[in-house]
Design a protein around this nucleic acid. Structure first.
Lengths: 215, 215, 215, 215
DNA sequence: TATGAATGAGAGTTCATTCAT
DNA sequence: GATGAATGAACTCTCATTCAT
């Protein structure tokens, strides 16, 4: 990644420029795909010259990397926010799942971007993306673990379970053309919750859930 | 799509050539991606000249379309084969799931191809791919429906359930880098079966399952 | 040019094939131009395979040469035919001019072909075309000379005069888009005759002409 | 046609580049023909890279169009210049004819270009060329009309007469291989004048001409 | 004699990247 | 810092020509 020697106050201008360009890149890469988007188009969308991009990014690939990481970051940020203040582990799990699905829904094209374009990057950059993904997954995994420890979930492999949840959320973007005609987002989320709870809840978990709903 | 006028015996040569080229295309598109693969490379891999490809395919895009359809066809063909002769609906469902996961495992790169590259095609071609996908899904859906009708599965939305199964199988390819270090294919399949059965089986279903295993 | 060793009766088949292909070539080269016409298209139009063309012609250029010569031959043949039996030199001249204009009218595209494509040929082939052209011109030139010798035309340079007549006729094809909206062929011919007669007739010529019209 | 956004002073650089490339294109297209000339060759001749051409022209066809129009413009510009200050309509007519022949002589290959290559363009572009041609013709036509109105020329169709003059001039390029061995340019021009004056002058015209020469 | 599958050189065009201003 | 004109490598696709059948 391009390293700018930033001396003090310059830092903000640099960050601002990077954001401006990254935002345009996410938008265009998501819509049209990495290879069908030209650097010139990104420059136009960002309102800068093509040449300037090369002062903030090494090359087009670097731009892709940053664009994908930007999207993954938004997951890592928005999900914990959504469950903030929810103490009950089961509620927290459900809220996190809902939040994930909502983020995917609002950034469908960007979600697909990682699936389409990650493989276009060199191994080293791919690893950065995988780590960012793992980070989000670990958050979800933590919520599941809490439920298991509380005896609400069966003792499933929480990492595999996390992938189930994550893939279910991603499927809303990946297979939207197939799912959208049949359900709206809330229907999709409820189906998912029904499924996952049946798959994972223990007897104690069911009682906890019912009390929850009684209250 | 390119239409060759094929009169009788010529048909075989044409099919053979198309297969030869498509196989190379699936291989290379899967490995390197659509845009990073040149037509020349496909020609070399297929052992033909670059020009000849244009006698069997309209253009590079056509080649991509046929490559993706080829992969999807292998799903549609191999899964019914794997459950042939299995009468019990629950057994059939489990066998189909296993088969799906095995096909994905054996054609990982090709499975990813559809996710990466479908969007690079024009709408009309995308629709052909979607239909091929629907066709496979309908097969799986039929197996699930049979279990529901037999009272073995809860009355879930079988289409959504199908997507769950399919995405789980696809995840083995899409997130292989993440999953493979933790499990082998059989472990992954068993985790999945455990999960899905818990999510869907009725009381009757559980009894059926246990009798099954006793026998 | 391709030399076929023709043994006796084979000769006809060969000539027939050549004619078949040349006719298609004239047609297509005239309509679309030399470079925009593919050998395959000519083969299709002639109802033979592309490969066969190379048994009767050296290459595509050869085909062009023969096509142009074919058109020029039709001039050399048709004009003398049209004046056959006309003894009066002035009448013969006028009839020849009319005939030339009519041939051009009926083969407009082919007439343009020589203008468009001759330069695409190597010098040696160009010379063959020039000679064919000279041959036709010499015929016209002869008619003019006869009028001069008879004292009906001024003693103009008959070769230049010939070019005037020829270019006037060719202009009907070359500038058809411009001329056709203003005149029909006969109007164009009459304008031309009026022009040329005024330019060339002597006093004696005028009297000859009037006597002609009186009779 | 390619539209460059030109703001003020940039305009000159753009015009200069376009001229540089157009000049090379006229040269090469004229010498070798449109299809035998590669964009790379034009770039080399113009001293720029092949890619740059596509920043000033849409495609090779656009380049052809501009090249032809450039030649036609030189007619429209140079002929009126040559007759500037000549008040007598007959003298003006003769000077214009001389000028036309001289321009054709100095740009022989370019003159042929329009005949060879116009048909390679799409209808819309062909129309632009036709209009440019009409414009030049209208200038000549005006000079002839003036002679008719002054009673110096017979009341001929001035448009057809214009074509006669124009074709005669063009023939110097189109049939140069045939004409040049017999006459030089001045001889050709004089022959033409002799011819046209005989064809068109009235009695009054002849007297005007003689007085002219007496003076 | 006739076919048409196969070749492969070569063309137009795009676009990431650089660098003088 | 910022521009955008300029580069040139690389790619897709076409088509004249050959040759096994």
């Amino acid at each position: 990644m391009n390293q700018q020697q930033t001396s003090g106050g310059e830092d903000d201008r640099v960050r601002q420029r990077r954001r401006q360009i990254t935002t345009a890149a996410v938008q265009l890469f998501s819509e049209r795909g990495y290879f069908q988007t030209t650097v010139q188009e990104i420059a136009d969308a960002a309102g800068v010259s093509a040449g300037l991009i090369y002062q903030y990014f090494d090359d087009k690939e670097d731009l892709l990397l940053l664009a994908i990481l930007d999207v993954l970051d938004s997951y890592t940020n928005e999900i914990p926010q959504a469950v903030e203040g929810i103490a009950d582990p089961l509620d927290r799990c459900r809220a996190a799942f809902r939040a994930y699905c909502h983020v995917v829904d609002s950034r469908q094209a960007a979600t697909i971007l990682a699936y389409r374009s990650t493989k276009s990057l060199p191994r080293q950059h791919r690893d950065l993306i995988k780590n960012a993904e793992r980070q989000t997954n670990r958050i979800i995994g933590g919520y599941i673990d809490a439920c298991i420890e509380a005896g609400l979930f069966r003792n499933v492999d929480s990492e595999i379970a996390t992938y189930q949840l994550v893939m279910y959320a991603h499927a809303w973007a990946l297979k939207h053309w197939q799912l959208a005609p049949r359900l709206d987002l809330d229907g999709y989320i409820n189906q998912g919750l029904d499924f996952f709870l049946h798959a994972m809840l223990t007897e104690a978990g069911w009682r906890h859930l019912q009390r929850d709903e009684t209250v």
